[in-house]
């Protein structure tokens, strides 16, 4: 018989290296004569899309489009160290470094432009849609590239180097007390499953995922991280297991170490909550790891909801489910 159930899972995740380890990202920025710009950072884009995020941040600050920014990363001869692409830290940490660097390079330009526009303070200058001009006075503006070109002829160099460090302290080794990570990300997911009580097979029908991202710098990428995380979570909950025999991996192949296929993935609905994290770039915090955390709990809880058995060891294989069902039947007599 096929029975359906629904389960809920919540999770939290402290991002960054944590525990007082110097969690530093760096970035170099140069604004070119035509107003376009290059960002150099050590952060590796492992596929998650960090390069696009950095381009968006720089573009936002310079009043440009993302495609006007060249992002060059992870070449040790060229780029500064930005720490590892892990710990859900690149959007937050390197995003902050890029933001600081762009603002620094931009600040010289603002000072120069303020003089050009006879504006007493650079606060009165804005960069928007490829133009630089006086806030609130559309008649006094100039193509950004022209202003940069002019500034350079006058000896200004719009380059910068900046770093950003996350806040974190080591925990006490005997009590574990301390503030090891900052910031924390939160999320919850609901999974609806169907369990076949005869074969023990579990099919995940639907997952609703709601995650706290501070600010979604790119909603497409947020959704992509969530769907990817949910799918890895399903693999973790139901399929994946390295079989070891005296330390030897018995299934070192994709035909025996099974990850989900397109047909194993349920309908995924991804939502996010945006409550700005004051220390993050535009309020953003990371999502990479948190996206996969609640899934396993939601699936395991849903199995219990469907057939009344509690699976306590991963993965929840059909064998384990049938065995638990048999034990339950025995208990009930």
């Amino acid at each position: 018989m096929k029975k359906r159930g629904i389960g809920l899972g919540c999770a939290w995740y402290g991002t960054g290296y944590g525990n007082g380890f110097p969690d530093v990202s760096s970035a170099f920025v140069e604004i070119h004569d035509d107003g376009s710009a290059t960002v150099l950072t050590g952060a590796v884009d492992v596929g998650q899309g960090s390069n696009s995020i950095f381009a968006q941040i720089a573009a936002e600050e310079l009043g440009l489009r993302a495609e006007d920014i060249c992002v060059n990363t992870a070449d040790t001869d060229v780029t500064p160290d930005s720490g590892t692409s892990a710990a859900t830290r690149q959007t937050y940490n390197t995003g902050n470094a890029v933001l600081k660097a762009v603002r620094q390079a931009k600040s010289r330009l603002l000072i120069y432009a303020a003089r050009e526009f006879s504006c007493p303070t650079p606060e009165g200058i804005e960069l928007k849609s490829g133009y630089i001009g006086v806030k609130g006075d559309p008649s006094r503006r100039m193509i950004l590239g022209d202003m940069v070109f002019k500034a350079r002829l006058n000896g200004e160099r719009l380059i910068s180097a900046e770093s950003s460090t996350a806040r974190s302290t080591p925990v006490d080794l005997t009590t574990g007390q301390g503030a090891p990570y900052w910031p924390y990300s939160f999320g919850c997911q609901a999974a609806e499953v169907e369990v076949d009580t005869e074969t023990g097979k579990v099919k995940v029908l639907k997952v609703i995922a709601v995650h706290d991202v501070g600010k979604a710098l790119n909603p497409t990428q947020v959704e992509g991280q969530i769907a990817g995380g949910v799918t890895q979570g399903i693999g973790y909950a139901l399929l994946e297991e390295l079989e070891l025999q005296k330390g030897m991996i018995k299934n070192p192949a994709f035909s025996s170490y099974l990850i989900p296929t397109a047909l194993d993935v349920p309908k995924i609905e991804a939502y996010f909550v945006e409550e700005a994290e004051e220390s993050g770039p535009y309020g953003a915090k990371g999502l990479g790891e948190p996206a996969m955390l609640p899934t396993v709990a939601a699936v395991i809880n849903a199995i219990d909801d469907a057939v009344g058995v509690r699976i306590t060891s991963l993965p929840a294989t059909p064998e384990k489910i049938l065995q638990a069902l048999a034990e339950k039947k025995e208990e009930l007599g």
């Binding site: 919850c188 706290d212 939502y271 994290e277």
Partner: peptide
Amino acid sequence: TGQELTSSVPLDQCLAKI
């Protein structure tokens, strides 16, 4: 660990959405 969560803890909002 005795850490006070000082900002952006919207798990309740996430739960409200779900």
